[in-house]
Computed example of a mutant assay.
Amino acid sequence: MTRSQLRAARALLGWSQDRLSEASGVSLPTIKRLEPGDGALQTRVDTLMKLQAALEAAGVLFIAENGEGPGVRLRKNP
């Protein structure tokens, strides 16, 4: 997951950083530290897994690099 994907996933859901923190169990200061900038998230694997699991449970699909770049979208029926 990239920093841009994290921000975009939150935006698609209309979630604040606080809401993501509650849903994932990742501290708010950690989320605030991870989101700015570009590139891959630089964090522990368990933190990444918690963030991804919370976002996917809410309906986010992460799209891997496919020639056009990584991205996110919402499932049809979250």
Rank of each mutant, 00 (worst) to 15 (best):
N77G: 14
L41H: 12
F62P: 14
L48H: 13
L20G: 05
E65S: 13
G71I: 14
V60H: 02
T43L: 08
D46Y: 05
A11G: 06
S16G: 06
P70F: 04
G39H: 11
R3N: 07
L6H: 06
L12C: 11
W15A: 06
L28E: 04
T30M: 10
G71V: 13
D18A: 09
G25T: 11
W15Q: 05
R10K: 15
T47Y: 00
D46F: 05
S16E: 07
T43M: 04
L74E: 05
K76P: 13
M1V: 02
E68D: 14
K50R: 12
L20T: 02
L74T: 10
P29R: 01
E35Q: 10
L28P: 08
Q17S: 04
A54I: 03
V60D: 01
E56S: 03
K32F: 03
M1N: 06
K50L: 00
L34V: 09
T30C: 02
A8L: 12
M49L: 13
F62W: 15
K32W: 04
S24D: 00
V45D: 07
T47M: 00
M1A: 09
A64P: 07
V60T: 07
E65T: 12
N77R: 15
W15P: 01
P36C: 11
A57S: 13
A64Q: 13
L41G: 06
A64W: 09
M1L: 09
L34G: 05
A57Y: 08
S27R: 06
G71W: 07
L12K: 13
S4M: 02
G59E: 07
A11L: 11
R44P: 03
L12E: 15
L51D: 03
A64C: 06
L55A: 06
V45P: 03
E68W: 05
W15N: 05
P36N: 07
E56Q: 10
S27H: 01
N77M: 14
E22D: 06
G69T: 11
L6W: 08
G25K: 06
G69C: 12
G59I: 10
N66P: 08
A9K: 05
M1R: 07
G67Q: 04
R73K: 15
K32H: 10
A64F: 01
R33I: 05
R33L: 10
L61V: 15
T43I: 09
G14K: 11
G37L: 10
G14H: 08
T43H: 02
A53T: 01
Q52A: 00
L13I: 10
R7C: 03
Q52I: 00
A8D: 14
A9W: 05
S4Q: 11
R10Y: 01
Q5D: 05
I63Q: 10
R33H: 11
G14M: 09
A40W: 03
Q52T: 00
A9R: 05
W15V: 09
A9M: 09
R75Y: 14
S4I: 03
A53C: 08
I31S: 01
R75I: 12
G67D: 10
R19Q: 09
R3M: 03
R33C: 02
R33G: 03
R10E: 01
K32Y: 07
P36K: 09
P29W: 03
V26N: 04
E22C: 02
D46R: 12
E22Q: 13
D38R: 13
D18T: 02
